[in-house]
């Protein structure tokens, strides 16, 4: 798949996964790589950027196994950004689908 395209979609997925529940890094990355083929390591730079831009807040919480985990929590700005991305995505994918349907007739 086209790399830039995948990056945009990845950003959307990461934000969606944190909407209902705070997630820790591995959990987040794993839930994506389960469905989409990616180099798992490239998700962390994305998380870092989204955090820097204020869409995520992070905190450490104890875990049952091993050391404390870093959790990602969607901020208010993150929620708004996600809504905007989802809307753009839906418009975009609807248009692409339309084009495909017309073209493949």
């Amino acid at each position: 798949m086209n790399v830039q395209f995948k990056k945009g979609a990845l950003e959307l997925c990461v934000l969606v996964f944190t909407l209902k529940k705070d997630r820790y890094g591995y959990e987040l990355v794993h839930s994506i790589s389960d469905k989409i083929q990616i180099a798992e390591g490239t998700v962390y730079p994305l998380l870092r950027r989204l955090t820097k831009e204020g869409y995520f807040a992070t905190y450490l919480a104890e875990s049952n196994e091993g050391p404390p985990r870093k959790y990602y929590q969607l901020t208010k700005a993150g929620r708004e950004y996600l809504e905007q991305l989802v809307q753009e995505w839906q418009q975009f994918s609807a248009s692409v689908n339309e084009i495909i349907e017309e073209g493949m007739d």
Binding site: Y26, H30, A39, G41, Y44, P45, E65, P67, R69, K70
Partner: peptide, 29 residues
Amino acid sequence: DYEAHIDSAIENGKTEEEAVADLGSPKTI
């Protein structure tokens, strides 16, 4: 971040080698 990720992946049944390979190359990151 990466150390924690690899540790979690191993806890979830991957070998160290697999866990590292799934991350992609350090250069890409």
